[in-house]
Computed example of a mutant assay.
Amino acid sequence: MLPKQRQDQIVRALKADGAGGVKVLAAQLRVSEATIRRDLEQLHEQGRLTRVYGGALAVDGGDEPFAEVSAVHADEKDRIARRAASLISDGQSVLLDIGTTALRLAQHLHGRSLTVVTSNLAVLEELQNDEQIELIILGGFVRRSYRSLVGYLTEESLRQIHVDWLFLGTSGVRPDGRVMDSTMIEVPVKRAMITAADRVALLADATKFPGHGVAKVCDPSELSVVVTEPGADEATRAQLEEAGVQVVLA
């Protein structure tokens, strides 16, 4: 693989996950950690990412097209989404966060008698013709690059509802179990979603454990369930379980 191709893959992975560690990126791209460090330094100099200790953060405001993000870790996201769908009982109300894993969860809800609330425009497109599902779209400012609704109107809409389940995405889970996000504009909406739900399920593939992020979304005590993979960091999983969180492996 040419250096330019490898560096483009690094940037796409960071846009999808919000952040990435040197070890994780080296394993994903099958190159040495020294190579990844050199790539990160070059990409930082070019302004394509922000270099931090142990890895790098995506540059906020420059999202990749939704379809490209969706293709990253696609199989892992689908397994997590399928397992998450099994937690939902017919007749329940479900709040879906932004992001591509939430979209994959929506794909596993077709034909079920549910109420789905979302600020995710991709979920709207997926479920709008399914007559079994009562679909509620939150208001707000359209963030076209990531196909989501954000802002005061979104947060105010969330204050008017209450649901059985929230399925939440993240940029990363810190070793102490804190849920983080690198996209600052989405964090107030995520916090309002947590307040609006009886139970909160975090959907996160193994690359998010442990992860990075510039803003805290919630403490582990605010989660009910985490749906992830067997490869997720065991120490972080142990911290979540110690906080009373059920960790479900897809």
Rank of each mutant, 00 (worst) to 15 (best):
R6F: 04
Q7W: 03
D17T: 12
A26D: 09
T35I: 06
D39L: 00
L40I: 11
L40M: 12
L43A: 01
L49S: 07
R51D: 05
V59E: 00
D60P: 13
E64P: 02
F66H: 07
H73Y: 12
H73M: 10
D78S: 11
R83Q: 13
I88N: 02
S89M: 09
Q92M: 12
I98V: 07
L103H: 04
A106Q: 05
L109V: 08
G111R: 03
R112Y: 02
L114W: 02
T118V: 04
L127H: 03
N129Q: 14
G139L: 14
G140F: 05
R143S: 08
R144Y: 06
S145A: 15
E156M: 11
H162I: 00
V163C: 04
L166I: 05
L166Q: 04
F167H: 06
P175T: 13
D181W: 01
M184D: 11
I185Y: 12
V187R: 02
M193F: 00
D198L: 10
D198C: 04
D198W: 12
V200S: 00
L202R: 12
L203H: 08
A206Q: 06
A206F: 10
A206G: 04
F209Y: 13
G213E: 00
K216M: 14
C218D: 05
S221V: 10
L223D: 11
S224C: 03
E229H: 06
D233N: 14
A235R: 11
Q246L: 09
V247S: 08
